[in-house]
């Protein structure tokens, strides 16, 4: 399970591994308008999220 927090909403992905680039596509988020973080560290789009990770998506323009 991979946890994702985006726009204050918590989501869970039933995956063992997912690329940041793929995750953003799945969430219909343009990578030009967001950054993905794990443990407060910015991730590049070629990095993988692994089971147990929590990823926070920060938007350039807040959605709420």
């Amino acid at each position: 399970m991979i946890r994702v927090i985006v726009d204050g909403e918590r989501k869970q992905l039933d995956k063992k591994r997912i690329r940041v680039e793929t995750l953003l596509k799945r969430l219909y988020i343009n990578p030009e308008t967001a950054l993905a973080l794990r443990g407060g560290e910015i991730l590049t789009e070629d990095e993988d999220l692994l089971e147990g990770d929590t990823c926070v998506i920060m938007r350039t323009v807040a959605k709420r």
């Binding site: 407060g40 910015i42 323009v61």
Partner: peptide, 12 residues
Amino acid sequence: LSEREILAYCLF
């Protein structure tokens, strides 16, 4: 500078 670059700057 783009908004994304500024967001990254603030985070770093």
